[in-house]
Amino acid sequence: MKLLHCIVIAIFVAITSCTIEKTDYEAELNVETTEFITFEEVTSITTDNYTISIEALNGTLYKGYNEIHLKITNTATNENLEDAHVTFLPIFTDANGNKASCPHDYHLDYDETEGYYLGYSVFTSESDSTVNWTLYVDFEDNSELYAVNHPITVKEQTNLNLNMTAFTGHDDEQYFIALVAPQSPSVAQNDLVAGIYKYNKPANPAGTFPDLSQYSYSIVEGHTLLIDPRMPEPSMGNHSSPNNEDLTQETDGLYHGVVNYTMTGNWTLNFILKNESGDIIKGTEVSTEFTPGIDGEKGELHIDILF
């Protein structure tokens, strides 16, 4: 009996443990992505009696799409400035001193309920030793015009789900597509949000800096962004997913659609951008063939993501 007792104990101890641990799915999704939900101060600029505070997600400006919250406080009265006709201009200077900008919201509107000026900026490159970014902010108070500029740092976006691409369309215009959401996708139907912007080519040569006509960008209106997600890994043989929905513009100016990811890993979002009349601005259809062992073909317009 003692022996049996021992055997029972031995057997049960031996097998109450699993050999391979089950995957913690929620943790699995956060391996490559971190979801930021709080806006924190990136920098603040003080001029005369005013402090300008600039906020972004995680207190950092990243390459790609950034929602910008801007607050101006009169330090003398400790009051927030409303309707101060705030303008916002990011300027990029390369090693040769050439200046350029990026898609941005120039006239920032005041959001009364939230108490800040709302805008966005799609930084097209990261700051480094040769490339630097400067922010030009103008505002008005008591009919007096104030203009400040301040260096900022644009960091690398490690979350590929907020990746971006810049390209020249068949109409010879310069376009930008930046992913806005989801920050942390899952193996599911994901609501995909992207911003599509265009550089407004100046008609005249540059005047005195900063000549606004040289740095004008606008939201691309009423286009369609066709989507075909695929896994580029050779072993995945150009795997795709069903039930994706092309992106169309909604009232927030951004483009919304649905992308299905069938598993975690590397994905390529192949796009075709079409204008209102259905003409292709950029993008090619990719093969739908299943090609195991071969790197997945990517269309001429695509963004790589990873989650």
Partner: peptide, 12 residues
């Protein structure tokens, strides 16, 4: 993936 340093692909 063939390159084991790359991200694995997971699904249920």
């Amino acid at each position: 993936p063939q390159d084991r340093s790359e991200r694995t692909m997971f699904a249920y």
